[in-house]
């Protein structure tokens, strides 16, 4: 019996051959690149990679650098706000669109359009809109409301929220679309049943519909989270990290030290910290989601 059964390795051979390029890419480019980066983060590499190991020096310097701490703080603020607000806004918009309104297609298109723009364009547009001399502030002041004061991009304390506005404007449309697809996947019978029972619509959403949309929420969360961690181009286009270093983010720190500062070791150390942060979040989640129990 065992002799006649084909070797497990050769089962589904064509599919496995087809997967080889991707497996190689994953191993060499992602895993290989990661290992290489982590290794060199323990060296004193400057402009060119060198194998002169200096232990944890780069990490020590990293955590004593105010700019790095500022960028971590910014990423946290941006990340938490972005996660919560884009989910809330996206879901509310989707729920509103789901009320069988007229011109739904038109609204959906309008709301999704910002997502078609790159972060660079988004950043520039909002840089202009938020410019105190000719943006929103000056328009409202010219309308007569002289005391109106809104220039987040030139105020170090709130600049990250200026960036957040642009990020939300760009990203909420996509979240809305995903949510709308999820809502459409809910069986209409559920709505009928809840109406028969006299449950108010908001309660149906929160206690019945949202729990049923769990897979959609998880997909959306992963998409938003990956967008948060790699936040870079929006900052570069909108604020350039300024004023001062007030809107810096880890990805920009990494780039600046690797290339402008000609200090690869420092950049590698910072990017390793970014990887660690992602792992700290992803590993427990992946364990809960895929590991342990074997669900049907």
């Amino acid at each position: 019996m065992a002799a006649t059964r084909p070797n497990r390795l050769f089962r589904n051979l064509t599919a496995k051959i087809a997967a080889i390029p991707m497996i190689l890419t994953a191993l060499v480019v992602f895993v290989g690149g990661t290992v290489w980066t982590v290794t060199y983060s323990f060296t004193s590499s400057k402009l060119l990679p060198k194998t002169k190991f200096v232990g944890l020096d780069q990490y020590e310097r990293l955590w004593n650098t105010p700019r790095w701490l500022v960028s971590i703080e910014n990423l946290l603020i941006y990340g938490i706000c972005m996660m919560v607000l884009s989910l809330v806004i996206g879901f509310v918009l989707a729920a509103l669109l789901d009320q069988k309104i007229r011109y739904e297609n038109t609204f959906r298109t309008i709301l999704l359009y910002p997502f078609a723009l790159s972060f660079i364009v988004t950043g520039l547009v909002w840089q202009w809109l938020l410019n105190p001399d000719f943006g929103i502030q000056s328009v409202i002041q010219r309308l007569g409301w002289q005391s109106f004061d809104f220039d987040p991009l030139y105020n170090a304390d709130i600049v990250i929220y200026g960036v957040l506005i642009a990020g939300l404007w760009q990203g909420s449309g996509l979240v809305m679309c995903l949510m709308l697809a999820g809502l459409r996947g809910i069986d209409q019978e559920i709505w009928k049943a809840s109406r028969v029972d006299g449950i108010p619509a908001w309660k149906t959403y929160i206690f019945i519909v949202i729990p049923m949309m769990r897979p959609v929420f998880i997909t959306t969360l992963v998409i938003i989270a990956s967008g948060i961690v790699r936040l870079y181009d929006l900052i570069v286009a909108q604020t350039g990290g300024g004023p001062g270093i007030a809107s810096d983010v880890p990805a920009k720190y990494v780039y600046d030290y690797m290339f402008q500062g000609q200090n690869l070791g420092q950049g590698f150390a910072a990017s390793t910290m970014m990887l660690l942060a992602v792992l700290v979040i992803v590993v427990p989640w992946a364990y809960l989601e895929f590991g342990g129990k074997k669900r049907v």
């Binding site: 650098t65 001062g244 030290y257 500062g261």
Partner: peptide, 16 residues
Amino acid sequence: EDTNNQLNDLFVQFFQ
């Protein structure tokens, strides 16, 4: 350039 970059970080923050 590494030192210059650190000085850049310090003074751009200081002046802003």
